[in-house]
C-alpha cells in the first residue's frame, strides 16, 4: 500500500495561522477512520510542533506520512537549533520572552508534551543550521 503524504509550509510570522496544519491533518485522518485516540495524539504533537516552529524558528515545513501501522510527523526548520536538548525536554523549561508568555505560550510544555503523546521521537539539531523533529504515533 502506498503511504499517504501531506505537506505543509508553516509561516513563521503568522501566529494566528499556527494550528492550521494540525487541523487539516486531523480532518484527513478522521476521513480515514483512524482510532480517535491516535488522531488526538497526532493533533497534540503536531500543534505543539507548529507553535514551536513559529516561536523559535521562523517557520518551516511539516510532513505527515500515514501507512498501515503508524503516522509519522516530520517537522523541519532552519532556525537557531536547540543548544541543550535535555533541558528543552524538561517540563517547565522555557526560553520564551515575556511577550510570548503574555500570548499564553511558553509554559515549557511543548517538547515534553510532544514526547509524552508520541510513541517515538527523534531530534536532530545543529546550532544556527536548524532542527528536524521526527515523531511516530502508532495505532
Amino acid at each position: 500500500m502506498e503511504a499517504l503524504r501531506l505537506e505543509f509550509n508553516i509561516d513563521g510570522d503568522d501566529f494566528q495561522a499556527a494550528g492550521e496544519a494540525s487541523s487539516k491533518t486531523k480532518r484527513a485522518l478522521k476521513k480515514l477512520g483512524l482510532p480517535p485516540d491516535t488522531i488526538r495524539r497526532v493533533a497534540i504533537c503536531m500543534y505543539e510542533g507548529e507553535i514551536n516552529m513559529v516561536i523559535h524558528a521562523n517557520g518551516g515545513t511539516v510532513t505527515v506520512e500515514v501507512d498501515e501501522t503508524a503516522v509519522k510527523i516530520t517537522l523541519a526548520d532552519r532556525g537557531p537549533g536547540i543548544p541543550d536538548i535535555s533541558s528543552a525536554l524538561t517540563e517547565g523549561f522555557s526560553t520564551a520572552t515575556n511577550q510570548i508568555r503574555e500570548l499564553g505560550f511558553g509554559a515549557g510544555m511543548g517538547l515534553p508534551n510532544m514526547r509524552k503523546y508520541c510513541d517515538d521521537m527523534d531530534i536532530k539539531t545543529e546550532l544556527n543550521v536548524g532542527t528536524t523533529v521526527t515523531m511516530t504515533v502508532n495505532f
Binding site: 500500500m1 502506498e2 503511504a3 484527513a28 478522521k30 476521513k31 480515514l32 477512520g33 500515514v66 498501515e68
Partner: peptide
Amino acid sequence: KHIPSTILDEDFGKAIQKLK
C-alpha cells in the same frame, strides 16, 4: 456512541487511496 459520518472506506488502504 461515536457515529462517524465521513469515513471514506471501511478498508484502510482504499480510504488512503480515495483521500489521495
